[in-house]
């Protein structure tokens, strides 16, 4: 990757301290995002996707704390930035949209008031200019009759509309990086298609970089350039999008792909991953995936593998691809089997 890297996250670790117990929600997340590209962060619920996103903007709630790692945004480590510095970045250089469009807007202020606020804080725009720019933004995100809509309260808008408003608000100051945390999970597919198309278009138009957090491999395939697969608070595989789907190396990535019921082709039998996601309170010591992995060996149970190069394209956290692998030689040769 010779492009300019806008965001470089290195071994990020974020924990929640509850009753003298450390819940390691994010425990070693690394990825690089080239400027103008989209990276997908995928994983099942509880794998640490949202906490990763919140950590980048330092929006963690109380018992949560970044305990290690670096978040380099344009060469500036955000974990070390002052409160004031980070505030001037939020909503300005890095914006975020959330999963729940229904509850993410303040119910007691109009759409216009909420958009104007961002413009005022970062660009010092007054009421009239703010209103003008607000209407422009609503038009940009495809809201019909923006003049009227801007005076409405969130409850007067549908879910899809609210998500458009959230996007308008996020785009108000032309951010260089947009973090979208499951922006379409709560929406119907036809509305999801609208929103994803909108984000794609705006990205091209404005040259933004995007972090797309999702649990839907379909969304990843259609929107991302690079993918980081998370499991148990860790990135287990990182590659460009084609490689992730065509030549996945980590047993979890493969398991995930084999579990998806496809709407475009017939699959006789799904190949689910056995067991379920471990709770963060009793994470396995070795490889987090070992209790569910069909290839696990004693080594996997005891020692945690590093995220290492496997090929030019993949970074994988798995013992299979190391010299120390003493399990099934077949897997090492061909990788875990795709069934779909």
């Amino acid at each position: 990757m010779s492009e300019e890297i806008i965001l470089d996250v290195k071994d990020l670790r974020t924990s929640f301290f509850v009753d003298d117990f450390e819940v390691k929600a994010v425990d070693g997340v690394s990825f690089k995002l080239p400027k103008g590209k989209t990276i997908g962060i995928v994983g099942e619920s509880g794998s640490g996707k949202s906490i990763t996103a919140l950590s980048i903007l330092r929006l963690l709630e109380k018992p949560g704390k970044i305990v290690g790692g670096e978040i380099n945004f344009k060469g500036n480590d955000l974990t070390k930035a002052s409160e004031q510095e980070i505030r001037s970045i939020r909503g300005n250089e890095i914006s975020m949209i959330f999963q729940e469009p229904m509850t993410s807007l303040n119910p007691v202020y109009t759409v216009g008031q909420q958009i104007r606020e961002t413009l005022k804080v970062h660009q010092g725009l007054g009421k009239e200019q703010g209103m003008e720019k607000g209407v422009e933004l609503l038009k940009l995100v495809g809201i019909p009759s923006p003049q009227e809509r801007i005076k409405q309260y969130p409850h007067e808008l549908s879910g899809g509309m609210r998500q458009r408003v959230m996007i308008a608000m996020a785009l108000a100051c032309n951010p260089e990086l947009l973090i979208a945390d499951e922006p379409t999970t709560a929406l119907d597919v036809t509305i999801q298609a609208q929103i994803l198309e909108l984000i794609n278009e705006l990205q091209e138009e404005l040259g933004m970089s995007v972090i797309m957090i999702t649990h839907d491999m379909g969304v990843v395939a259609e929107t991302c350039d690079y993918v980081a697969v998370m499991y148990g608070g860790k990135v287990v595989e990182y590659a460009d999008v084609k490689t992730i789907f065509k030549d996945p190396k980590h047993p979890y990535t493969v398991g995930l792909l084999n579990s998806i019921p496809r709407h475009d082709i017939d699959v006789d039998e799904l190949e689910p991953i056995r067991g379920s996601v471990p709770s963060p309170k009793n994470m396995p010591n070795g490889c987090r995936f070992a209790p569910r992995c069909p290839f696990a060996t004693d080594l996997c149970m005891e020692e945690l593998p590093d995220l290492g190069d496997v090929s030019d394209e993949n970074l994988v956290r798995c013992w299979i691809y190391s010299e120390r692998w003493d399990g099934d030689p077949e897997v090492k040769e061909h990788g875990p089997k795709r069934t779909t």
């Binding site: 597919v189 298609a193 491999m217 789907f245 709407h263 475009d264």
Partner: peptide, 11 residues
Amino acid sequence: LLSAIPTPDPE
């Protein structure tokens, strides 16, 4: 509706 579903295949 069918065309709106994202397909898990980038190609």
